[in-house]
Design a protein around this nucleic acid. Structure first.
Lengths: 251, 251
DNA sequence: AAGCATAACGTAAATGTTACGCTATAAAGA
DNA sequence: TCTTTATAGCGTAACATTTACGTTATGCTT
């Protein structure tokens, strides 16, 4: 028995202020062998086979550094896709054969999701490279089973957004309440009353008001806040809420 | 480069009414080669290498059927452990060499957790076999990195217990409110006021009162309830609560 | 029949959530 | 400079949920 190869694929999320974005790799595929100049443009998630002395998160980070120029990216395991036939379309098999020069019997992939603040340095990197940001709503199909991986990514992102302070990984360090609200609305696909949202946010001790205000907007500039991670970590141990969807109690 | 092997390891949880239990495999390891009769007893999680045409959940299920005699076990991916040196102690390497007759360079393992109702049929299976139930509190060390996997299992179990109705996978089909409360208290390590807990449970539409009562107890027998899964699935789509640890709103 | 253990019910106070009216402030245009 | 416009930001009453804790009910045991 030949062992399967193991890869990582990364669902890299970013937020541009109004829409959730995903970073995709573009590549061309020969339409037919008779005319190799005819290329079909396809998109896939960034990914890579793991190397001999490397664990999965190292492989994912390696992939992302090349792509975004960022180290210290927020990165979490998402799910493992292991269907023996997950790569079975002839064009997918051929791409694998051409890309990796070693023989590949089967690829089990560990999906990660990454949260990135889309700032100047990342934009520069991605504009110049082969990768490009896409609004998640506009993505119709992807190569291999990557659409399925993306959907899993969205599901887990929504879920974790509700239970952990990961929103701040997608926002700039200093942000307005409106930006935070837009992010929740965009990712969860809901509408939130701004006045109540504001009230809640102000009651959270680890979201701290700064002395600065928004600039360059054509209306009353909003105040800027930051997320105090250290304070959150400390508080969470004390407050430790035990909430169930249908059973809820505090300690 | 030789591809890593892939295995699944299962953290099988059960609940005996008062304590959270885990199913472990017992095996003997030679203390030294001079005297092979001297065995050191060790414990590990049930697991297995994946087969050629098998996906991970199939491998996990295969492992569990052999172990418990149950099909249709509640099973979820937990985490992937991929440190290149996760198996590095000499005795662990030797065990691998002796157990799997093929050469193994490195094993990446996908951990699953399973929830099992400890009833007669499972008990019979496990008593007769090499596996044994252990109270999670009493487990001091395990072979390989299995203690670490177990800890991750406990963490994810607690987390999911708070957000999804998985408690019922550990209880008999018909259960008392007290049993449900004991389960939450045992897994989360908290104390809950019985009167408030009861009130909450009674307000959950998908937890349904039956016509039966507990039997064979030395006090007032409690009424039995069951979890109506179909109803839960239907309701969850309507109610869909968007709760955050620090930001909470309903749709 | 009395004692005991736990089931089962109730209630008031505190806290959190929702719906919605209103004011404040900066920028832009007349 | 005055008005308009858009969004920031504050307040309040109704409603719902959670918490703390007193009380009654029921079946088994002795």
């Amino acid at each position: 028995m030949v062992n399967p190869s193991i890869s990582v694929d990364c669902v890299v999320f970013g937020f541009d202020g109004s829409e959730l974005k995903v970073l995709l790799i573009e590549f061309g595929r020969k339409m037919n062998n008779a005319d190799p100049s005819q290329l079909k443009l396809e998109r896939k998630l960034p990914g890579s086979l793991i190397q001999e002395k490397e664990d999965l998160s190292a492989a994912a980070q390696r992939t992302l550094v090349e792509l975004t120029g960022l180290t210290n990216i927020f990165l979490r395991q998402l799910y493992v896709f292991s269907d023996p036939n997950r790569i079975s379309r002839p064009e997918d098999l051929e791409w694998i054969k051409n890309t990796y020069e070693i023989p590949v019997s089967r690829i089990v992939t560990v999906a990660y999701f990454a949260l990135v603040k889309i700032d100047k340095s990342v934009l520069q990197h991605t504009v110049e490279g082969v990768s490009k940001w896409h609004g998640v709503q506009s993505i119709k199909q992807l190569a291999f089973d990557h659409k399925q991986i993306l959907m899993k990514g969205l599901e887990v992102l929504s879920q974790q957004l509700l239970n952990e302070p990961i929103a701040f990984e997608l926002l700039p360090k200093r942000f307005t309440i409106r930006q935070l609200q837009n992010l929740y609305e965009a990712i969860l696909g809901i509408e939130i009353d701004n006045r109540n949202f504001r009230k809640k946010v102000l009651n959270v001790p680890c979201i701290k008001l700064l002395d600065e205000k928004e600039k360059g907007v054509a209306h009353k500039p909003a105040r800027l806040y930051r997320f105090d991670k250290a304070m959150y970590e400390k508080d969470i141990k004390k407050k430790m809420k035990y909430n169930l969807n249908f059973i809820r109690f505090t300690d």
